[in-house]
């Protein structure tokens, strides 16, 4: 009996057990939960196995040099181990994360700006054309100019990431502020709240779910922009790592770098989502 059969069996039985007895719903055990989690990796495992077969058995039989272009998962895993043990991968990852975080700190300026744009019509009128023109320019298109401005290194990289994070936060903040229920503002006014009070204690709070959505999207954009920036304008970081590996034909290192970028991006997104759920239980209840 395979693990997937086991979990499927458990799953099909549980509704019957719960039945009409609301007092004692079936509490999933740790084992059944982890088995169910594992099930979703079925297809991925199959792909990895196929890849292992193609790169490990089939390609060497056809043309051994081709293996260099697509090393098998086992080789990638070995390369990952070496890179972690030597401390190289953690160092590059940290360099990239640091840039992302610093850029994020600067990009938080989008929140007050977005609130101002959403709240005062005239601010929106003046700023919006500028934003709408700058926004469609991909952060990557700023790379040549930013290298001339900042040189190669952290500042240039952070600038590119900043552009990636800033606009999603700004757009979402504006949308969030404009979408606030009129009566919430009116209630605050009737309760004697000053304009400052309303902005900080009602508008900011009410727009927070949308702002967090902006932060999530922004982090994703920023992470993508980061790697692009590091490819050409850095001497450290994950982008630098994979580009550097290319020049010495270490495809296994390239793949390790790419996978690290993917996993880290996924991890950041999960973290922000979990944080949002913890901080804003009320907004979740409202949207459900």
């Amino acid at each position: 009996m395979s693990s997937s059969e086991l979990t499927a069996g458990r799953h099909s039985r549980s509704p019957g057990d719960a039945g009409f007895n609301i007092q004692t719903p079936r509490v999933p055990t740790f084992l059944s939960l982890s088995l169910r989690k594992l099930r979703q990796f079925g297809f991925v495992s199959l792909l990895i196995l196929a890849w292992q077969y193609i790169s490990g058995v089939w390609l060497p039989a056809v043309d051994a040099t081709l293996v260099t272009l697509l090393p098998p998962p086992s080789a990638v895993a070995l390369a990952a181990r070496d890179l972690i043990v030597s401390g190289e991968l953690p160092a590059h990852l940290w360099a990239s994360l640091q840039r992302e975080l610093i850029a994020f700190a600067f990009a938080l300026a989008a929140i007050p700006l977005g609130i101002a744009m959403g709240w005062w019509k005239w601010v929106n009128e003046q700023i919006d054309p500028l934003i709408e023109t700058l926004r469609p320019i991909p952060p990557i298109a700023w790379i040549p100019l930013s290298i001339l401005w900042f040189g190669i290194g952290d500042a240039q990289n952070q600038f590119i990431i900043f552009l990636g994070i800033f606009f999603p936060i700004l757009i979402n903040t504006v949308t969030g502020v404009k979408g606030i229920e009129t009566n919430l503002i009116r209630a605050a006014q009737s309760l004697g709240a000053s304009q400052w009070h309303i902005l900080t204690r009602v508008v900011l709070r009410a727009a927070l779910p949308q702002i967090l959505t902006g932060i999530r999207v922004g982090f994703g954009f920023g992470w993508m922009a980061l790697v692009a920036a590091e490819l050409v304008g850095a001497s450290s970081g994950l982008g630098f790592l994979i580009n550097d590996a290319r020049s010495v034909l270490r495809t296994d290192i390239i793949l390790v770098g790419m996978l690290t970028i993917g996993f880290t991006g996924f991890l950041i997104d999960t973290l922000v989502r979990k944080l949002a759920r913890r901080l804003l239980p009320w907004s979740l209840a409202a949207t459900r």
Partner: peptide
């Protein structure tokens, strides 16, 4: 002339601060 504390309002949709 403007909203004020001396005239409190109870709204049909409650307008409570959900947070």
């Amino acid at each position: 002339r403007r909203p004020g504390r001396e005239r409190a309002v109870v709204f049909q949709d409650y307008a409570l601060f959900p947070w």
